[in-house]
Amino acid sequence: MKFVLLIFICGLFVSCFDPGDCLISATNLMHIQFKTQRNQHLDTIVTFAYYSIEVSGTDSVLRVRPAVAELLLPVDISKDTTTFIFHRINADSSVIGTDTLRLGYVRQGKVISPACGAFTYYQNLKILKTNLGSEQIKAFSSSLIKDPTKSDISAYAVNYQIFY
């Protein structure tokens, strides 16, 4: 009985001094994949040279050259909506098409610990407005990716697939 009590008290004090882990599992990155409408099981055979992507809340324009089949795109950390304008551009700089995707989400502040600080978790991702047809966009996870350390972006949960 004495030993049980001793172990209990030791456990109590060890847990009191446990500093905890600084595991931060929040990003503002949305995972988007581009696929062909002809065969939705295959990754996009990209038929244009690059994307130029305008993101609301910033003056910067993202140029993705060469065009890739999947991207991580940041959402605006200070607003509950972000608008993306995708320009599909040929090698000769002629624009094939422009698509708009306006997304809404809930920003939830969460304290990890005093030493680690507080972080924003982005949830309930939903499409507020788009010119894409319902057959051109498919929604998957409504939370943004949580592990920013993986090198292969295919490992992340997909938020949207866009079909051209």
Partner: peptide, 19 residues
């Protein structure tokens, strides 16, 4: 109540959040 500074690794400037 919580107030903190949110950062983004890319594009967006630091933002002050109060909730």
């Amino acid at each position: 109540s919580l107030s903190y500074s949110a950062t983004s690794p890319n594009l967006f400037a630091k933002s002050s959040i109060q909730t």
